[in-house]
Simulated scan of single mutants.
Amino acid sequence: MSRRSLAVALSCAAFLLLALGVSGASASTTWLCKPGLASNPCAPGLGTTVIDPTGAPQGTLTPAKPKHPKVDCFYVYPTVSDQKTLQATRKVDPEERSIALYQAARYESACRIYAPMYRQITLAGLLKPAGVTAKMRATGYQDVRAAWREYLKKYNKGRGVVLIGHSQGSFVLRQLIADEIDGNAKVRRQLVSAILLGGNVLVEKGSDKGGDFDNVKACRAPTQLRCVVAFSTFNATPPEKAVFGRSDTSPAVVQGKPTKSTEVLCTNPAALGGGSAPLTSLFPSAPFAPGTTIGALTTQVGLPQPQVSTPWVEAQAYTGRCSSDGGANVLEITGQTGAPVLHPLPDATWGLHLVDANIALGDLITLVQSQVKQYTAH
């Protein structure tokens, strides 16, 4: 698949979520990650090699893992399926296992992780949008909603929950929060926070709420609860037709069409109150599933691939700030001396979409740990 073809395909991704349905039933959930699950991709070791901006190792560390986590994390993965049909089955393939490792597993230092499989629109489906039916578009959301309800009924037992999503996963969770959480005070009290990356969360201009949600506000302090963190990463001013950061040109709408009164939310997890701050990046040392489309793209982004013995690599090679340059609200990153230059993929309109979940993963985990402490104290 060429970069141009993939760009055209992905540009249709958000449109495919506009017709999310709320009817229909789903079979019993297939769990990608769940406590006690055999061969759980969300339960690796936490050993970490710290590198400097050039990639040189500086030492190792192993974060503490809570024996009895006080809250859970509910993760919905982005578009990764390489199945040849337009819509994926709920079969667990290598690409889902890899994306769970890359994006969700490190949260194990703060929570128990639940991640359902869902019948998402595949990369093949995004290349042929004319063949994707409204029923197909609704099925993925129905799977996640059914999994959420099953989780609440069978596993939650009144615990707090952090929602985590990226790209198609964020679009689905935007709908889930709007339908199942935002207007339900009882369930909303259990929401610790929502991390919705690369998904164009909408708020009213000049406000931390409105747009997608009436009650779930933007996170602006480490101890704030029932709030959302959202950003898309760029290392240059987003172009006029940027897929992310623009409520007027982006197709990523859930609750309705964007209006002149809405804008895309950006919250910098390293500086929730605003301004610029160093970002702590975390990524697995293992390569993303070889032979897959996303696996091939991850090798082209430009992140360092140091040969280390630990499962994880940590670096502070970039600083980030929420920027509205060019009329797009995005997390704009700048490399420190010696840091690798990261490449927008599949083209400049997508920015650094492929690194959204890892570029500030250390900061996101620190934030979640702070929120968990606040939640359990009250």
Rank of each mutant, 00 (worst) to 15 (best):
Q142P: 00
L361P: 04
V243Q: 02
T122M: 04
G256I: 07
R137S: 02
V144K: 05
D52H: 10
Q307W: 01
S323T: 05
L17R: 10
N184W: 13
T237G: 13
V201L: 04
S285A: 07
Q374M: 09
D212F: 09
V8F: 08
Y114M: 06
Q175P: 04
G327R: 02
T223V: 09
C322A: 11
L152Y: 11
V228A: 11
V22Y: 05
C12E: 12
P57W: 03
Q336Y: 14
D93S: 15
N200A: 03
R246G: 06
R159A: 08
L101V: 07
T233P: 06
D179E: 14
F234C: 13
S276I: 10
G295E: 07
A100G: 04
C73P: 00
P311W: 09
I113Y: 10
A339V: 08
T60W: 01
I177P: 06
L32P: 00
E204S: 14
G302Y: 03
D347P: 05
T319Y: 06
C219Y: 14
R97E: 13
S81L: 04
V308E: 02
S285T: 07
I359G: 14
V132R: 00
V330R: 07
L297W: 01
P78T: 09
L10G: 06
S324T: 07
E332V: 12
P66E: 03
P44Y: 02
L364H: 11
A289Q: 06
A146C: 00
T139H: 08
R159S: 12
V80L: 15
T249P: 00
K153E: 15
P238H: 09
K257F: 15
D214H: 13
A270Q: 00
I177K: 10
F283L: 14
I164Y: 13
L123V: 01
D248S: 09
G131V: 01
T337N: 13
T293F: 15
D212T: 03
K67T: 13
V243P: 00
T280V: 14
I294S: 10
T60K: 00
